[in-house]
Design a protein around this nucleic acid. Structure first.
Lengths: 205, 205
DNA sequence: TTTATTTAATGAACATAGTTTAGTATATAG
DNA sequence: CTATATACTAAACTATGTTCATTAAATAAA
């Protein structure tokens, strides 16, 4: 391996060292309690060093968001094994929500936090987000084509599906469900999904 | 007016001076660019003075959140003039969304930001939030009773309605709709609402 | 091998943040 | 006229993101 490549590899190594430490800290301490300085301390480098590998903090959040989208995209592939489109529609919602609630930090980065937005907009084409949306659309199209979803504009139906699942996820993650007793919340969430899905979907029989 | 009352009135006056300045700054500069120090500067007091009237920053956010809920609650009363429950259901969603998109800062404080949560949980009964939720439930019950909404558990149906509208609002407010061209977004939102509402609701005829 | 140059890393500093404390005027009470 | 309570603030403390001049280490040139 040539010297330029080694340098490049070293750079990548350092970047993922930083990302790993950052994410670990976020999971342990929560976003509000993680600073560049703490990340630096964790990896035993000076704070200034981090700026040699990431332009600013928002750049780190953006990179972590990308990791979240990667994980999200991978886990979502599980729905494809379900060939019954009605069941897949339900599974789709379940998988979405389950990702959100099991990985609230990633979900927050992906769909709620302001931090990564600047970088998202800088990109002319924000591929990783686009890919997730295209996956959603592709499946919604199939739900529609197989007659389980009322026909309408594809973006409209996809956005409706997304809004519902995101709404649930973000209300829970951002602590807006405190009026429901903890032991009821799960049933309410499941019930809401059922309620809408079974109404939205024109269940053939 | 007795002296104790005058003091009390002065305290209230000062509190609303602070709140007013804070909100004005939030609207002008955005949440990230408003500090206690800037609020103090705006009202021409020292930063320390603010702490005589609010325990901490989160306390100020909580107070502003309450103002938001007040405004929200008031504006929502408009739906009651609609006696046709099917139309009211649609209007309800419209009014909710319209509040969110016309007052994104208030909406953020009410349903997205972490800032006010600590105080929300401290209260044994968070009346102002509870009141809004009860209003939602009361109306959802009427939609159900008049046969425009499939019968199910009340909390479930209310949460479903809320999740959908909140999902739309929060995706827009937190800039997650950048894949839609600006001039399409509105139609997609409206379309999604129509799509779900007309599916969810068992439109009598 | 010695010297010059690029690269990696950092210490110290800057600006700003939330918050606390000790202290100073000012108004009220005795 | 003194004592006490009230309203306010300057200054400090801790912590943040970020920058810059400088040093140490690795590489290239001589």
């Amino acid at each position: 391996m040539g010297i330029a490549e080694r340098r490049e590899a070293g750079k990548k190594r350092m970047q993922s060292l930083i990302l790993g430490a950052a994410m670990k800290l976020f999971l342990e301490k929560g976003f509000d309690n993680v600073s560049i300085r703490r990340i630096a301390e964790k990896i035993e480098y000076s704070p200034a060093t981090i700026y040699l590998y990431y332009k600013d903090k928002s750049d780190i959040l953006f990179a972590l968001q990308a990791m979240g989208f990667e994980k999200f995209y991978t886990e979502q592939q599980a729905i494809l094994s379900e060939k019954d489109m009605w069941k897949r529609l339900r599974k789709h919602a379940k998988v979405y929500l389950s990702f959100a609630l099991k990985n609230p930090e990633y979900y927050d980065l992906m769909f709620i936090m302001r931090g990564p937005v600047k970088k998202m907009k800088e990109k002319k084409e924000w591929e990783i987000g686009r890919r997730s949306y295209e996956f959603l659309k592709k499946n919604v199209k199939e739900y529609m084509d197989t007659g389980y979803l009322k026909k309408t504009n594809l973006d409209v139906a996809a956005f409706a599906f997304w809004s519902l699942t995101h709404g649930i996820a973000s209300l829970v993650i951002r602590d807006r469900c405190i009026m429901f007793p903890d032991n009821h919340l799960n049933a309410i969430i499941e019930g809401s999904l059922d309620f809408v899905m079974e109404s939205i979907a024109k269940k053939k029989q």
